[in-house]
């Protein structure tokens, strides 16, 4: 019996709705009916198994999108980066080398992280979040929520690159220091240090801004936003 695999949004994939599910059927589970691991799915993708690839997309596309969004603070760019990366993985699945012993998600986080870093370098250091509304506001947000999020992401983007990455991976992706270190290609100690420095830098930035606003006698104050 084929089981439908729920996607991240909690909705079932309906063959009628997509019209493509026949081409990308849900990945069949192994005989023991356990869910295949990402690594197994990646290996099957390398053999041309479209169902396995579709399962990887359903499992991870939104997670990687969220990471890219927080990195770039731009919805369209985040979507494009994840789409391009996943498409490249379909075209060249052999680039993932299981023999290296890395987890598939760790490897793919590296790819997304590098793509985001390149995108940020290409377009310039920091997006002027408050000037042109570059951060897309969705229907799901109230204007206040979107504004506060912009504020947080703006502070994060002002951090040095490696500190920015460490905070995103450890704080938002819920990775341990060693997992983040594997993605960043550094040591666990180094990540610990980067996170500690990032926190100090953020506190300093927010206190400075808070002080400036106090002197000016008002305005938007990031440190107040809780």
């Amino acid at each position: 019996m084929r089981r439908k695999t729920p996607n991240n949004s909690g909705k079932e994939n309906s063959p009628d709705e997509t019209g493509r599910v026949a081409y990308f059927p849900s990945a069949k589970n192994s005989p023991s009916d356990r869910k295949p691991t990402d690594e197994e799915l990646a290996a099957r993708t390398a053999e041309g198994d479209r169902a396995a690839y579709a399962e990887i997309v359903r499992r991870h596309a939104r997670k990687f999108y969220a990471f890219a969004f927080r990195y770039l603070a731009n919805q369209q760019e985040a979507e494009d980066i994840v789409q391009t990366a996943l498409l490249k993985f379909w075209q060249r699945p052999h680039l993932w080398d299981a023999s290296r012993g890395a987890r598939f998600s760790t490897w793919f986080y590296q790819i997304i992280l590098n793509a985001c870093r390149d995108a940020l370098r290409t377009r310039g250091k920091i997006v002027p979040l408050f000037e042109d509304g570059t951060v897309a506001e969705s229907d799901h947000d109230t204007p206040e929520e979107a504004l506060i999020r912009k504020d947080v992401l703006h502070y994060l983007q002002r951090l040095p690159e490696r500190q920015h990455q460490a905070v995103l991976l450890c704080f938002y992706e819920g990775m341990t220091h060693s997992e983040a270190a594997a993605v960043m290609g550094t040591t666990q100690k180094s990540v610990e240090l980067l996170v500690r420095r990032a926190k100090s830098a953020l506190k300093e930035m927010m206190e400075e801004d808070s002080e400036k606003h106090r002197r000016k006698g008002g305005g938007h104050d990031g440190s107040q936003a809780e």
Binding site: N7, S9, T18, R20, Y23, F24, Y53, A54, V57, R58, A61, R62, Y65, A66, F69, R70, Q75, A78, E79, V82, Q83, L86, L87, A136, E137, S138, H140, D141, E145, A146, I148, R149, D151, V152, L153, L156, V167, F171, Y172, L202, M206, G222, S223, A225, E226
Partner: peptide, 20 residues
């Protein structure tokens, strides 16, 4: 303060479908 960026706006509804 950082937790306020934990939720991000969802991607386009047909995001996964577009990739596939």
């Amino acid at each position: 303060f950082l937790k306020q960026a934990a939720d991000v706006p969802p991607p386009a509804e047909d995001f996964e479908r577009r990739i596939l």
